[in-house]
Each structure stands twice: as C-alpha cells, then as structure tokens.
Amino acid sequence: MSVQLQFKRNFILPLILTSSVTRILFSESNVLANKIESGLHYLDPNKKMTRELEKNNQPFKRRTPDYPGHVPLYNHEKLLMFLGSSIGSFFHPERNEFIVALGESTAIKPILKNLQSTMLSNAIGRQILREKPRITSTSLNLDYLRSLPDNTIGKSYINWLDREGVSPDTRVAVKYIDNEELAYIFQRYRECHDFYHAITGLPIIIEGEIAVKVFEFMNIGIPMSGLGALFAPLRLKKSQRRRLREIYYPWALQSGLNSKPLINVYWEKILEKDVDEFRKEMHIEQPPDLRNMRKEYFEMKRREKEGMKL
C-alpha cells in the first residue's frame, strides 16, 4: 500500500483535534505524565462524572441508550464533557476519568465510521465486528500465555504485562459513544493498546508512551493517540527529546504508516504466532530497547560525574 493511500486513513480530522488540545495532556510534570497509561487501568473511572447524569430527577428525559451502559449525551453535554475533561487533564493528567472522557469526547463519529469502513473492507475485520471479542484475563487465559514458547505473541504480551504491572481486566468500558458498533470499535482500540506495547517492546514511561501513541495515531487515526505527541516533548529533558527526535519519532512515523491496519488484527487468534514473523508480515520494525538505552545513558552520566569528582 502506498504512503498516499495510507494517508487516507483517518488523519485530517484527528490532526485538527490534536493540534488544539495536545498541551493539555502533558502540562504537568513528567512524574504525572508517566501515570497516564497506568491510569487507564482503573475500574469504572467514569463513575463520578456520570453520577449526576444518571440521577432520576433529571430535568429532561434522555433518549433510549444504544447499548447496555451507554449514556446518551446531548451535543451541549458532549461539548461540556470535552471542555471539562480538557481542563481536568490540564491540572490532573494522572486522573483517569479525565483522560478517558477526553478520549471518548474526541473520538467523533466520522473518524469511527472511517475505522468501521476499514474493518468492513477486511475479512478479519468483519469477523471481529461480527464476534465482538473482549480482551480480558479470562478470554486470554493468562496462565496459558505464560506456558507458550518464548518469542510468541502471547508470551511477549504476558511478559510485558507482568513487567509493567498492568492487567487487561481494568480497561474502561465505553459509555459516551453513540451507536453500539462504533462504541465497540473504540473499545477494541482501547483494549488492544497493550498489544501494541508488547509487539514493540516499548515500556510505560513517558518516552515509550509517546512513541506508541504516535505509532497508533499514524496507523489507526484515533485523535486520543496523537494528543500527547506534538507538544509533550517540550516538557521533557534534553536527553529525552533527543531520543524521541532522533530515534522514536522516525520509527513511529515510518512503522505506523507502512504497517497494515492494526485494528484488523484478531490478537486472540494469533497468540501462538512468532512475534518476529508477525512484525515482518505487518511491516513493523521493532524499535531499539528504550529501557536499555536509558540505562546506558544514566550509567554514562554517572561515570562522567565520578570523573569530575576525581
């Protein structure tokens, strides 16, 4: 597939949204920014935000929900949710309810319809939409994944989960996206995010999260994937910005554009597949090991500091 054809996937509207709200997500310190991904693994973070909406004494009647758990919002409420979650993310980027609400409020219908078309045009994508699988510790059987041979997708995934201390069970259920199938597509994207980390080997630290988000954005086009990518490096240290600029941004842009649509990957069906073979088929290059690169950098700085003392 040519680069021009790849650019037709989802980027015009996401780029408009991205440029306007990117500063919000990473406006606090790196310590807070590092908590964003971990914060997405949290049970029912929308509970406080929707409490008032779900009271019986509402001054107006809400339309019938499109699916269980759906909270239909009027346009002015969607706007208020976007503004509120943006402000909340500015002051508390570690608060999951703001990040999740911001993600759903920016996943507008034309972008999700575009993803739906991508899935409907592919046999595996159609199968995913027909069967609507969910990614949980039960559906994946984490003990079975630990028994798989090294270098399989399943073993790479469970090793990454264990190393980063996260679980597939705590991905938040979509509530505010209208249309059951579009809501599922966004839920699927949300639940597959950890697989993108696993196949690339990128950890949950600020640089790794930014790199994966750029990779996702260029491949899938969900606005939330690009919100922290443009201006987040302004808050980073010089060494972190250099690594992103020289290594991880070029990798994310190239692999994200050149790879086949990740939204069409039925991960549950290929857990036994060799991860290197999968990357080759998908045209994904594995980036350099970020943790080792940081370790080597800190070791170099330590030696320089000791040399100055001598």
Rank of each mutant, 00 (worst) to 15 (best):
Y144R: 14
Y144V: 12
L148R: 06
P149W: 06
D150M: 11
D150E: 13
T152R: 11
T152C: 03
K155T: 04
S156Q: 09
Y157H: 03
I158A: 02
N159C: 07
N159M: 04
N159A: 07
W160E: 00
L161G: 06
R163E: 07
E164V: 02
E164D: 00
E164F: 02
G165W: 01
G165C: 01
S167K: 00
S167M: 03
S167G: 03
R171E: 00
R171Y: 02
R171W: 01
V172P: 01
A173D: 12
Y176Q: 12
I177C: 01
I177F: 09
I177T: 10
N179P: 12
N179T: 15
N179S: 13
E180G: 06
L182E: 15
Y184P: 09
Q187S: 04
Q187G: 03
Q187D: 10
R188I: 11
Y189A: 08
E191Q: 11
C192W: 10
H193L: 05
D194S: 02
F195Q: 03
Y196W: 11
H197P: 01
A198P: 00
A198M: 05
I199T: 03
I199G: 01
T200G: 03
T200F: 05
I204M: 07
I205Y: 13
I205W: 09
I206E: 12
E207P: 06
G208H: 12
E209F: 11
E209W: 14
A211Y: 02
A211E: 10
V212M: 04
V212H: 00
V212E: 05
V212I: 15
K213W: 08
E216C: 05
E216K: 12
F217V: 04
F217N: 11
F217Q: 10
N219P: 04
I220S: 04
I220N: 12
G221H: 13
P223M: 10
P223K: 11
M224A: 12
S225Q: 14
L227C: 09
A229L: 13
A229Y: 09
L230R: 13
A232D: 09
P233Q: 09
P233N: 10
P233Y: 13
L234I: 07
K237I: 05
K237D: 15
K238E: 07
K238N: 13
S239L: 09
Q240H: 15
Q240T: 08
R241I: 08
R241C: 12
